[in-house]
Amino acid sequence: MLVIVGVLALVPVWIWWTYPRVGNVLFALIAWVEARRSRLKTLNVPIKGMTLATYQGGDTHAPALLLIHGFSADKGVWLGFARHFVDAYRVIIPDLAGHGKTAFVTGGDYSIAAQARRMVALLDACQVDKVHVIGSSMGAYVASWLATHYPERVLSLGLIGAAGVNLPQPNEVEALVNSGDNPFLIRTRQQFDRFFAMTMAAPPFIPEVLLAAEAQSYIKRRAELAEIFANFSDSPRMEPWLPHVRVPSLILWGREDRMVPVASAQTWLEGIPHARLEILEGIGHLPMVEATQQTVAHCREFLDKAKVYSSIRP
């Protein structure tokens, strides 16, 4: 009887221990399948001081499209979006330093300027001279830094829910951070559920086992994310440089974005000459995941026009 009781007592412990690991295996399998569907290959690209994990696909002679994910995310957020562009572009999707499969190193410098320099090094390593770039959230911050500090490398600029300017109105995330309760720095499953609810207004169905794995990953990475967050949030805001953007620019925002308020879009629109703004109703911080087809349509129309512009500009 004692043996049976002991075994039964171990069952919940075994489930707690293995459940997120099953989710991690499923995550890896789903990512592999989605990358195959999108005709993207996993390529590790050495640059000075590190190796960047990337997805890449498309004709190497086609115009290049660089997709940059946001803080705490990884290159996988672009998989469904990217499949719509591999026929016409050379698509390059990196894991930024400290994210995904690109290693975190304590004291590694995760400022926006440093992440942008790494993107230039990635382009050099891939023998890409000029690129169309689309960034999400912190990735849009990096993309705008590229466009303003390395203008000779950027053909067009797409900003999705962009971080990087002073917020024009009170914001839920900023208030939590200022109170010492950064929603990205997670200790419990309850905190992860709160964070996840803030990321998307219209999320796709995600099985519980995958959410459990993601929650465990955030808890495990808490100290790393804290250092990256401190570096990127201390970076200079973009307002002084926005008038220097000289390429076609698309600003895309979800009306229900809780991470970066939609009011911020106006700062980008007023700062960047000739920028175009599109707001998606009922959508949150990750339009390329929540409303993939709508986001693809806006970006494809924008990129088609930008390609014409880049072909005639000196």
Rank of each mutant, 00 (worst) to 15 (best):
I272R: 05
A103N: 03
A62V: 02
Q294E: 12
V45D: 07
I312A: 06
L210D: 09
P248M: 00
M198H: 09
H99F: 05
D193V: 15
S144K: 00
V11G: 14
E34G: 13
Y141C: 04
W253Q: 03
S233N: 04
E270R: 14
F104V: 10
E227F: 06
S249V: 00
S310M: 02
S311D: 09
I312Q: 15
H84F: 13
A215W: 05
Q169H: 08
W32R: 13
G100E: 07
V45K: 10
L123Q: 02
A202S: 09
L43C: 09
L176N: 01
P183K: 00
A202F: 09
A201T: 10
E34D: 11
I186G: 07
F205D: 15
I30R: 15
L52M: 02
Y110C: 03
G161V: 03
L43T: 10
A213T: 14
V260L: 01
W268R: 04
R222L: 05
R258T: 10
S144L: 08
V289I: 14
G98C: 06
L79N: 08
F302M: 11
R117N: 13
W145H: 11
E301L: 15
E239R: 01
A140Q: 06
I279V: 15
F81K: 04
L252P: 04
K48M: 10
A197T: 08
F81R: 05
V131M: 05
A226D: 06
L65N: 02
S72I: 09
V13N: 05
L67A: 01
I219W: 11
R117A: 12
W16L: 14
K75M: 14
T106F: 10
P240N: 06
G70H: 03
E152L: 08
L26P: 11
R300Q: 13
R246C: 07
F184T: 09
L280Q: 07
V86P: 12
H285W: 04
H132F: 03
W14M: 15
A125N: 05
P248Y: 00
R194Q: 13
K48A: 15
F85I: 02
R194G: 15
E278S: 13
G98M: 02
D87C: 09
Q56Y: 05
V128Q: 09
M200G: 05
G164C: 01
V22T: 11
P243E: 03
L65Q: 11
R187K: 13
Y110A: 03
L167S: 08
R83M: 11
V77M: 12
I272D: 00
A291M: 12
G23I: 06
T42N: 12
N166F: 13
A62Q: 09
W253F: 01
F192A: 11
V209R: 08
V91M: 07
H61F: 08
Y89N: 10
L210W: 08
V5Y: 09
V209H: 14
P170M: 03
L167C: 12
I312C: 07
S72T: 11
N178P: 14
A9M: 12
V7T: 11
R37W: 10
H149K: 14
M119I: 07
L303D: 04
D129R: 09
